[in-house]
Design a protein around this nucleic acid. Structure first.
Lengths: 203, 203
DNA sequence: CGTACTTTTGAATCGCATCAAATCTGGTGG
DNA sequence: CCACCAGATTTGATGCGATTCAAAAGTACG
């Protein structure tokens, strides 16, 4: 995990954070296996994942590894804002670009800057919305149902851009990539779906 | 949907809301089929579900009904705090006790009362945490895996109270109740789990 | 004591995971 | 430019686990 020079903040953060907090952010490039924090440590920084993947995990009652969150884009463990210490480990599972925001200044800014607090709340609301959709999606039984639900909720008027290939979509849907490929093929044959120019479209 | 006299607020709300907002809350008893709000309407009140079930839904691209959220306990559509109008319908699917908080005063309180804003943020963080766990849980393949994950994350030191019977647990896990009954029986036989006194316990 | 709901067990079926293998792709280095 | 490799895509075959349909037994409650 190495700090780099300061490339520009991602737009999402640029628009969210108040001006005086932005210079306090630091950039990190991390590689597979790095740990952003570990159990019981005191939160010092809030991490934002710009690319790659970070997993939150802890050991279960039976000593097994338990995944709590998988972040590919967005904040890691927002709740660390109020926690005295972490309840899990954060492990980098795919080389990631990260932005770290110092916690205490962040908390101060939220208390003293109502407009920022409202933006922060709006951000959390969006995140909640997304997660609720994902829960509903994952509780659908068929692969086709999940895929269509994804396109209808994450897509734009029935069109979903495929940034990272169907395989990563399969992971997001919680199905094997084979099943997804077959389902897409089947839906295309049924004229329900069309795959072209890096996007899926409902007909 | 009828307004009632004012029973005490649920503790969760009592502790969350500032004193001057609490009297503005109203109570509703709603029955199956009632609608809390509908598409394109302007949000006037924020709803909190104390019991029963409310579903957020909208019609999909193909005219099919699309479930966005299922609330049995907690706020409905927190994002309405910032939205100019609803993007879905809220339908009562099981007779519910509701508390309604007027939106504008709520928004004002968040802007003017930093301590309240921080409590609100903490509440959203908790909700995010819960939902992330649920997503991870739903992406597990086996019924046993999901059940153990539930007990390890929602339970207290390997013990999960069964408030509403195993059947509702099955719904939460996204599996048929038959499958869950069988799995519990199997895990008991394997001495992994014990079911007694209205709770499940990992051995 | 009857009605509604949960719990439980059984049997048949089906969809998806899994394992395997072939093809295709973009990117790298010789 | 080509050989080569890693990863994505695709198709096939097999088996398991969960759904589904059915039905019986248990339980709460008016």
């Amino acid at each position: 995990m190495t700090a780099t020079d300061t490339p520009p903040l991602p737009p999402a953060l640029q628009d969210l954070l108040p001006a005086d907090l932005r210079p306090a952010c630091t950039y990190l490039k991390s590689k597979r296996g790095d740990r952003l924090f570990t159990l019981r440590k005191k939160p010092q920084r809030m991490f934002y994942v710009a690319s790659g993947e970070v997993v939150l995990q802890r050991v279960g009652v039976q000593g097994d590894s338990l995944v709590l969150q998988r972040v590919r884009q967005g904040f890691v463990a927002e709740a660390s804002l109020q926690s005295a210490h972490y309840h899990c480990d954060a492990v980098v599972t795919s080389p990631a670009d990260l932005i770290a925001i110092p916690i205490e200044p962040l908390r101060q800014a939220l208390v003293t800057d109502p407009a920022f607090a409202m933006r922060w709340i709006a951000m959390l609301n969006q995140e909640l919305k997304r997660l609720r959709l994902q829960c509903e999606r994952l509780s659908l039984r068929g692969v086709a149902d999940r895929l269509l639900h994804l396109i209808e909720t994450e897509g734009e008027r029935g069109r979903l851009p495929l940034r990272a290939g169907l395989k990563s979509v399969a992971a997001e849907l919680g199905v094997s990539h084979e099943a997804l490929y077959r389902t897409v093929a089947e839906l295309e044959k049924q004229q329900v779906l069309q795959r072209a120019e890096g996007e899926l479209r409902i007909l």
